[in-house]
Design a protein around this nucleic acid. Sequence first.
DNA 1: CTGAAACGGGAATTTAAATTCCATTGAAAC
DNA 2: GTTTCAATGGAATTTAAATTCCCGTTTCAG
Lengths: 287, 287
Amino acid sequence: MTSMEKGQIKDVDGFNAYLASRFDGLSKQLKKIARFVLDNPIDTALDTAAEIAGKIEVQPSSLIRFAQALGFDGFSEIQRIFRGGLVQQLPGYSANYSHRIEKLKEGTEDTASSDHPVLNVFIDANIDAINALRADATEAKLNEAVGYINKARHVYVVGQRRSYPVAIYLYYMMRNLDVPTYLLDGVGGLLPEQANQIGPEDTVIVVTFPNYSDQVISIAHKAAENGAKVVGLTDRLVSPIVKLSDVYFLSDKVEVSGFRTVAGTMCLAQALMIALGLDRETAGENA
Amino acid sequence: MTSMEKGQIKDVDGFNAYLASRFDGLSKQLKKIARFVLDNPIDTALDTAAEIAGKIEVQPSSLIRFAQALGFDGFSEIQRIFRGGLVQQLPGYSANYSHRIEKLKEGTEDTASSDHPVLNVFIDANIDAINALRADATEAKLNEAVGYINKARHVYVVGQRRSYPVAIYLYYMMRNLDVPTYLLDGVGGLLPEQANQIGPEDTVIVVTFPNYSDQVISIAHKAAENGAKVVGLTDRLVSPIVKLSDVYFLSDKVEVSGFRTVAGTMCLAQALMIALGLDRETAGENA
DNA sequence: CTGAAACGGGAATTTAAATTCCATTGAAAC
DNA sequence: GTTTCAATGGAATTTAAATTCCCGTTTCAG
């Protein structure tokens, strides 16, 4: 990978590989340009140098410097490569994927082609899961949850097994936002003991999906009994923690060949953290 | 009669219909040009007027006459229509919300409005991130990664901070699939020590996103030096672990008001586990 | 703190592309 | 056969884009 030379560049992939191999040696601004070029092949191919420069917030001359730093005569030469790549992507106008799902059902889609049919269906399922959040994660519910987090003395986060990554994420983000948060991670089998201190001034975020962990449910029980606020992240109304929660969110009901989607819940967790972040920003401005 | 007017032309289809309605009134040579334009939208969009004229065997000036006969200012105006149409046909165009994200960054999209626009844009960004996997997570790459996992004596998973949830998820799933896996979690600051035993018969899955953790990068370095296979999960080609990886996947380039999407990488991690699961299932049947 | 080297902004210049203009051709009318 | 006029080729001009160059600014070494 080190001995990449300009000569062998014919297509966009080749260019990108070459650019990556040279990236470290570029100046700060040229890196900025490099990132844009890597991320926006369509703009790079079609816009004028001045337009591209405008989007990156850089002088047009810097684009030429960028091209020359990589050994090209000018930026136009790079654009030629990207235009060529653009045309190659065109003939198969496979932009809408609904007809690909149809094909998959009929078995007409070529399994040996570049992409994996199971993966594609799985991607669709994840997109569905995320889209479902638009209806479920309403502003009112998010604000309610944010309110519980803000006025809590301590926030506890609990999730086991499949839900543990989500719990970790919430813990990490809230720590970054200066929320006094504790992760009930059950290290050393001490989950019940860790939960003993939960009181009426605290908030517990409970993440649980089938098969619902008994330990997690019993923590939710204890928290509700002790008068703590409970925020539930789970999959459906019949989940055991719904009736224990002051506010709950439903996500990732979907399952594809035995694999439950997880992106919806991650996205939900992030949405909650963004709502929290924005709230704190606004509160800070008013102070 | 010709109720078609130039004003309503916005896309290629509209232009073509308009051109058809005016076709009969054109001179012999202008008809020749019209046919070419109807048949070669790609050339019409991308070539210079001189190149197109050359292909039709006509003078460039005739192209301008053609455009003006139809009521346009010049041929460039027609090219603009065709370029716009071209972009829409490109795969991934419909899923591209980057311009909305840009607006949000500039603050031109009203953050304080009734509906939580940040969350909607964030959901869009996540969908975008997941869609991008279709192109990047090819069957070949997934199978290569699965191969490294299958033939490894031990598999190590490493990821810090934001990437830790992904690492945890991979660890959890591989343990369930009976892969001899170890999570390098850095408990007690012992990350370097945990990585000491990595050898040529092992495989390391490295998850890292900006700001790339120095510790994680140095583990990837050491692993590559010691001859272990490295599977990289990161955000872009210029990530420090790309050149250290035997196979790498790119996801979650997007960032919305300071929050990086994470659903793409979770989905990718799941895709990898599904590929692994399916592979083991098939292998089991043959045994 | 000082000086050298690299970097980057922006005007000036060059180059290329688009458009206009004019002379010529060719076809139709008388 | 001559006249007329739209159609066309091709040079000339204008316009726009790409590239160069100069100079102020930053960065880093000593």
